[in-house]
Simulated scan of single mutants.
Amino acid sequence: MANAAASEKKLLDDTPRRSGQWSDEEIDQLIDLWGKNLSNFEIGERIGRRENAVAIKASRLKLPPKAVAQVQLALGRTSRRPGAKVRPCLCCQRQFFSEGPGNRICDTCKSSRGWGEGNEYSVRIGGGF
């Protein structure tokens, strides 16, 4: 019996998965599925990514905990604020979950030395600091 479960898990692990950079469509799917009472494994199955990739991407996008997202859906609210969406950072061009049109610099770039010092000349659009 345990051997059959191990074989089934191996088959699931051998399923081809996309790797590398996430597409905008995959990110949108992740955001939409996040509050629907699905495990990271189930979300990964639907998107075609591994369970750990789903968890890492959700963390990097700063998605709310699943319990919070589920409550918001139950109350008829969307899990995102109006104007919130995935946008490219104006400094590094990486995709990140932006809370609105005024949030255009990712947390990684905001934590950089140039940003922290307030040196306006250290920001190069699309090229980092």
Rank of each mutant, 00 (worst) to 15 (best):
A69T: 02
E42D: 14
I47C: 03
I31E: 01
A69M: 04
G127A: 13
C89N: 07
D13C: 08
P16Q: 09
L38M: 15
S39W: 03
A6R: 15
R87I: 05
D13A: 15
N119G: 01
S19W: 04
S111K: 14
E26S: 04
N103A: 10
G100K: 06
A67R: 10
R94N: 15
D14N: 14
E117M: 10
V123F: 15
G20S: 08
S122I: 02
R124Y: 07
E51M: 11
P82Y: 08
S98V: 04
G100S: 10
E99V: 13
G128H: 05
Q72P: 00
L73F: 05
I56G: 05
D32N: 12
A55Q: 12
G126Q: 04
M1H: 12
S19Y: 05
K10F: 06
R80W: 03
L30K: 07
V71R: 15
S111P: 00
E117C: 04
K10G: 00
I27T: 11
R46W: 00
G127R: 11
E51W: 01
E117N: 11
E99C: 03
E117G: 05
S98A: 15
R46V: 00
K110Q: 15
N103M: 01
M1G: 15
I31T: 11
D28K: 14
Y121Q: 13
F96H: 07
R60A: 01
V71C: 04
L90M: 09
A53Q: 12
E120H: 08
P64V: 11
R49C: 03
I125Y: 11
L11H: 08
A5T: 09
L63M: 13
V68Q: 12
R113A: 11
V68D: 13
D32L: 10
V54K: 02
Q70N: 04
I125F: 10
C109K: 05
R49H: 06
P88A: 11
D107E: 12
N37G: 00
A2H: 10
G44S: 08
K110T: 12
F41W: 06
G126S: 06
N103F: 13
Q93M: 11
G116L: 14
C89L: 07
P82E: 12
T108I: 11
T108E: 13
R94G: 01
I47P: 01
C106Y: 06
L38R: 14
A67V: 08
C109I: 05
G127Q: 12
G126N: 07
S7F: 06
C92G: 08
F96V: 03
S19Q: 11
